[in-house]
Design a protein around this nucleic acid. Structure first.
Lengths: 268, 268
DNA sequence: CGCGGCGTTGATAAAGCTCAAACATAGTGG
DNA sequence: CCACTATGTTTGAGCTTTATCAACGCCGCG
């Protein structure tokens, strides 16, 4: 049973319960038993790249637990107006939040997606009888809320280069917590345009932001979907918003590089 | 409804359950019974304006349900660096989210605050036995998540005047759902500086944004804490991001004063 | 009465958006 | 296999908004 991919997984980190052992690690929130029970009320849905999974404002009859693929959860008030992507959902994420019975945002598949579709009614009745499921959803929602606040924090940044750095750090942590180790390269599974719509910027600004970070020696892009962090110290400072990439990073030779080896410093 | 102020209240709107009757209305999520049970494990805390309620990174031993007053929930990475206010919490809100046993953001009282302090341990044991409490927290978290996404959406706006309009609309809806009717004036209980820190702008920009909205005839400020919406249609368009206040309002003199939608479309 | 925080107003500079065109990369059908 | 189209990405030039920095008025408070 352990190696079968046929039961939904819900992934999150611990919230109030301190767990120093696996701090920062994602755990599966559902016991096998609970996952199996959920599987009995779920159906498997498949979506192709670009497919609409649900649309904001329509009646919310089901939530989806992503099994594989990448889903963009977004909001667009008027057709043709600005889009803001709220989250990139992947395996172990649950989507389909509703407000007064209607989906409060939209979701489309960014590539081929398989997901468990769980009707709300079944879920509700199941929740009333199964406390563990309840607590799992609670933990997942806390996780989501934190992620959303982090998103807001990224959006509050003024310079696009900083936003990008924070975005990459977010993906890095996510991947690290899923894999259990920090990968050499961070994988950016979405397009530049998607990044722009997540970071509230234009694709052009995203391109230039990456260029800025590369020129500053902070990171290196193998291609548009794989970046390596070269200057971890400078990167962290960027993420913490304490300095601006254009000016100070180059002049950071004063204090910075004591903790980690810098590959190349201050080439200007 | 009830006149006993001695039990905690949790306020939220409905999520998946459609309730066409009281759509958009806040409901108290706890039955009197549950509230009473919660009260037995809660203690009342009082804070004065400026007091710290908890600090990010410290051990999270309790959550707080606000009974009265205004609390700023915020994050500040480095002392002296940028602050982002995530939420203004008031009566019926719950604060104290944690990550791996530590508070993930900070909270201070914006004025005199009374709150129910509920130790995590008691809450957990209570949750395991009381399913209703569980579901109430779930509903509240969905509410919070939506609020956070809305915040992100506001932050994604480029022009400060639009941000302000969306912020006012947010407060208006909140007040309307609490009162059960749309008030004539929207109350802004926080300072300009707090708004700036919520909207990721500077106080100066906030001032100028309000000026812009007033000059455009969208709203009128009785004082710094009370605004009335004069042009509901224009206001709504601003909130939906379909129209730029600076551009169109300035060009209005050329166009002879007619309010024109001027939306952009991708047709070529 | 002086002090410090807040709010407003004014100049300047920087960063990003808009618009637009060149470029790259698929996917498609001949 | 190739043109051909559609989509995404990059680059460039001009314009707008806001951050920054500063000064000033206001108010409450010691």
């Amino acid at each position: 049973m352990a190696n079968r991919p046929l039961a939904p997984k819900l992934i999150a980190t611990r919230a109030w319960v301190p767990g120093s052992a696996d701090a920062g690690l994602s755990r599966s929130l559902l016991s096998q038993e609970e996952a199996a029970k959920l599987a009995t009320i779920a159906t498997i849905s498949r979506f192709r790249r670009g497919d609409t999974i649900y649309t904001a404002g329509t009646q919310a009859d089901a939530v989806y637990i992503i099994s594989s693929g990448l889903v963009k959860v977004f909001r667009q008030d008027q057709p043709g107006s600005q889009i803001l992507i709220f989250a990139f959902a992947l395996e172990g994420d649950i989507i389909g939040m509703a407000d007064d019975g209607a989906y409060s945002n939209s979701a489309t598949a960014a590539n081929n997606v398989t997901a468990y579709r769980i009707p709300i009614k079944s879920l509700r009745s199941r929740m009333l009888s199964d406390l563990g499921l309840d607590l799992a959803l609670l933990a997942k929602l806390v996780h989501e809320l934190r992620a959303s606040q982090r998103h807001a924090f990224i959006l509050s940044e003024r310079l696009v280069a900083n936003k990008i750095a924070m975005f990459i750090e977010m993906l890095e942590q996510d991947q690290a917590s899923r894999l259990g180790l920090t990968p050499e390269e961070v994988h950016l599974p979405m397009s530049r345009r998607d990044m722009a719509e997540f970071l509230a910027a234009t694709p052009a600004a995203i391109t230039r932001g990456f260029k800025t970070l590369e020129k500053a020696g902070i990171l290196r892009c193998r291609d548009n979907h794989h970046v390596a962090i070269l200057d971890q110290a400078g990167f962290t400072q960027l993420v913490n918003g304490s300095l601006h990439p254009g000016g100070d990073v180059a002049t950071r030779t004063r204090n910075g590089g004591s903790r980690l080896p810098l590959k190349r410093s201050g080439s200007r």
